[in-house]
Amino acid sequence: MSAELFLIPFLTGLACAIVLPVLGCYLRLRDEWLAALAYSHVAAAGALLALLAGVPPALGGLSMAALAGAGRRLFAQRLSGGASDALLLVGGWAITVLLAANAPMAERMGHALFDGQLYFSGSQELWPVAIGGVVALLALRALSSRLLLARVYPDLFRLRGLPAWPIQIGFDLMAALCLAMATMSLGVMGAFALVFIPPWLAFRRAANWRSGLRWSLAIGVVAYVAAFALALGLDQPFGPVLALLLVLVGLLVA
C-alpha cells in the first residue's frame, strides 16, 4: 500500500534527479549556475500569481519561468556579470514573499514550493516531468558540442556561421522550464541542490567531459534515492533532507 502510495512521487523526483545534474553541467560550463536559482524563484512567484488569479499554479510557474528564460538574453548585454540572474532571483523571491504575506492561500503554497511537495506528486506531475526530461536530455545531447564550442572558442563558433539561437534563447528556455517543473515537486532549494552540487563535484574530479556528465548524473541519482529513503524513514520533509545530504557529500568529497 505504502509502496504504491510513494511510487509516483519517487518516479517524479527520480526524473528530476536524472535531468537536473546533467543540465547543471551545462549551466556550470556557461558560468550560469545562478540562473538556476533565479528560475526556481521566478517559477514560485508565477505559481502563486496563478493561484490567486484562479489559473493552475503549475501553468503560472512554467509560464513565468519561460518568460524569464526567453527574456534573459534581451538584457544580457546591459546586465552583464550575472546581474540579470541576481535581479530575477531577488525579484522572484520578493514577489513570492509579498504574495504569501498578503493571501493565506498563497502562504500555504509558498511554503510548499520552498520546502518541496514531492510526496504529494501525482500522475499529473509525473508525466510532464518525465516527458519534459526526455526532451531536455535529447536536446542537450544534440546541442552538447555546440555549447562546448561556443564556450571554448566563441570566435570559431561565430566564424563557422552556426546558428546562435539554439544555444542562447533555446538553452535558456529549456533550463527555465526544467527548473520550473522541478521546483513544483522538489521545492526551490531541493531543485537548486540537484542542479548545483553534483556538477560542482563532478567538475572537480572527472577526467573529461563525458565522465563529468556521468559522475554528475550518478551523484545526483544516488543522493536522491538516499534522501528519499532517509526522509521517509525519519518522517522529514524531502527537500531539506536532499539538500543537507548533498551539502554533506559536497563537503566530504571536495
Binding site: S145, L149, V152, Y153, A202, F203, N208, W209, S211
Partner: peptide, 18 residues
C-alpha cells in the same frame, strides 16, 4: 587561452570540438 580552468575537458575532446 580558452576558459578551461575548472572544466573537465581533455585535450582529445578539445581537438574533436574544432
Amino acid at each position: 587561452v580558452p576558459p578551461v580552468v575548472g572544466m573537465p575537458l581533455s585535450g582529445r575532446e578539445l581537438l574533436a570540438l574544432t
